[in-house]
Design a protein around this nucleic acid. Structure first.
Lengths: 180, 180
DNA sequence: TATTGTTATACTCTATAACTATA
DNA sequence: TATAGTTATAGAGTATAACAATA
């Protein structure tokens, strides 16, 4: 996939985060080690599952994890797909406006549009009336790919949401929108 | 906050991702630049908002972004909170088991438990019957902090979900659980 | 002065591969 | 051989600060 190395090796021994291996004797802890728990007794996740934030994260990870497979060999990531959808519905939007809509920083928008442009899906068109900014447009290839993606992403969502009725799906969408 | 630098400077000029600044003349694009769109006309997000994945991401970003404020000066992140909840309800679980429950890799579990341990919230207790593994336990401090966090995180969720009725909240939780 | 696009940088989260000690 | 914990590493995602060109 895309992109070269962006991170460096950590310094060889600097990486010992915190205080490791300082394990204490079991009897310095009030409770006793429960061997059944450590083995294969069902884990209690009741309290954890009451938190919406945790459920949100798990659902999002599951969704994103399957996204790459869903869009096949296109090498389009969720943020890129979202950008394509926004640009398609709002041809000529500036980069900053796109970033604002997507809820990311302007600086993050640069590499997002870079990627779309390098794939031949979008273009930066100079705006004559404001030489600081570019109008972002879909290319014909971008428009066509978006058409395919609308289908494959919709299928992906159908699969992810197969346990939900149509009404539940609408409800989920509506409730999520209330969170931001 | 924690952690030193982990990334290196990109090589000075290597960073030009893709083909930038190759802006073409406006008339090489079928559509014309819509100045109103580039200015302040309301942006059309109708199609984008039909995608559950996008809504999931936005909701999760909003939730996580406010989490740090919600837990005050404790410097506890969502994953650490989730780990504390799991450990508390399942004292003595191994590191691998915790990672499995949280849906992360064993290797990611290492630094998670490292952080809890370095903050004095959890302990790695040697398991006599299996010298490869540790039983993870909450310390008294961990138990107490978790008590406070249960309150502040619950308040945080109440705030995030203030636009939802109790029934809607339960529905949201139930629907999200169906996604993973 | 303010904004647009940009670059350099930093940091979180998470994964994969490989290693060591143990089973 | 297989598993638990660990380390080194890669890379996605995103933020902040600062700068140049332009408004």
């Amino acid at each position: 996939m895309p992109g070269g190395p962006r991170c460096r090796p950590r310094a060889r021994k600097e990486s010992k985060v915190g205080v490791r291996k300082k394990a204490v004797a079991a009897d310095s802890v009030s409770s006793v080690v429960n061997r059944e728990t450590a083995a294969s007794t069902p884990v209690d996740v009741q309290r954890l599952n009451r938190f919406v934030g945790y459920a949100l994260r798990r659902a999002q990870v599951a969704y994103f994890g399957d996204f790459a497979r869903a869009v096949g060999g296109t090498d389009i990531r969720p943020a890129e797909f979202a950008a394509l959808v926004v640009i398609s519905a709002n041809q000529g939007l500036t980069q900053s406006a796109i970033a604002l809509v997507l809820g990311i920083d302007r600086s993050a928008g640069v590499s997002l549009i870079d990627r779309l442009e390098s794939k031949g899906l979008a273009l930066r068109v100079p705006v004559p009336t404001d030489r600081r900014s570019y109008a972002i447009m879909l290319t014909a290839a971008g428009q066509e790919l978006l058409g395919q993606l609308m289908t494959s992403v919709t299928e992906h969502e159908d699969l992810m949401l197969k346990n939900l009725s149509k009404a539940e799906r609408d409800t989920l969408l509506e409730l999520l929108h209330k969170l931001y």
